[in-house]
């Protein structure tokens, strides 16, 4: 089984801290690796991003690939922050998984700083693992423009609102994959999913990728395998596109 060694773990963690601390920090890095796959996960506050990441990581780990998860949460006005996403990833399967690396970030109020640093952090992390997953609160919470530094962008949607809401939400065009997160408290998930498929799915991006929408239940871990298949499909698509 592939592992992230303790030395790699420590270097990666400290590198990430330095990037966040010093806006213009750079490490002379070896050439860009092609093999690492960067997945971005966005969605509004209560959409269920962190709940979904847990089964998502488990499903991705089945292929014996190393993963670095970078979790971004907003800082409070007083400068402190409660970074709770890591707690959502607590799981007997993941707790001591040596192929998994998790780092939590606070936005530290300076939106631009993290925006400058994030692409560098991601390309730094790419040297250590096979997959980098970046979770960030979507538009409205932070201004991190995540779509520019990821290969595949997954957006988590709570089944709230109707066709108009879907049309209006700004990030929609940018995401490659959508996951409609079903929850007990929402009774109209099925209807919303149908609408989302019409409004968001089956549309073709400029590069020829046809957007996909999936129905998942993050809490009950339903629909995860299908979603992961969808993510892989996008990776394959990107690989085929690249000139060899």
């Amino acid at each position: 089984m592939k592992k992230i060694t303790w030395t790699q773990r420590n270097s990666l963690a400290q590198g990430l801290s330095l990037y966040q601390k010093y806006e213009h920090f750079t490490i002379p890095a070896p050439e860009e690796t092609n093999s690492c796959w960067v997945i971005g996960v966005t969605g509004i506050a209560a959409a269920g991003k962190s709940t979904l990441i847990n089964p998502l990581i488990k499903a991705l780990r089945k292929k014996d690939l190393t993963i670095a998860a970078l979790l971004i949460d907003p800082s409070s006005e007083d400068g402190s922050a409660l970074l709770a996403d890591r707690n959502e990833l607590r799981d007997p399967e993941l707790d001591m998984d040596n192929s998994l690396f998790i780092h939590s970030f606070a936005t530290r109020g300076e939106k631009s700083a993290l925006t400058i640093a994030l692409p560098k952090m991601i390309s730094f992390a790419k040297h250590f693992v096979d997959i980098v997953i970046v979770e960030t609160a979507g538009a409205g919470q932070t201004d991190v423009e995540i779509e520019t530094c990821v290969d595949t962008l997954l957006q988590v949607l709570a089944p709230l609102g109707g066709a108009l809401t879907l049309e209006k939400s700004g990030q929609n065009e940018k995401a490659h994959i959508f996951a409609v997160n079903e929850r007990e408290s929402f009774t109209n998930t099925k209807q919303f999913f149908a609408l989302a498929e019409i409004e968001l799915g089956r549309k073709t991006d400029a590069d020829g990728w046809t957007k996909k929408v999936f129905l998942v239940n993050a809490l009950e871990k339903k629909g995860i395998d299908e979603l992961v298949e969808g993510l892989w499909a996008h990776k394959k698509f990107l690989e085929n596109k690249k000139p060899r």
């Binding site: 773990r9 007083d78 890591r86 780092h103």
Partner: peptide, 27 residues
């Protein structure tokens, strides 16, 4: 938090090994 720290919440039922792994990764 009152002292302005960034608090990473690891939750209940942790072994020292789990804490150490998280502490290293979170620096």
């Amino acid at each position: 938090r009152a002292m302005g720290a960034e608090v990473i919440h690891l939750g209940l039922r942790t072994t020292p090994e789990i804490i150490a792994k998280a502490a290293a990764e979170e620096n």
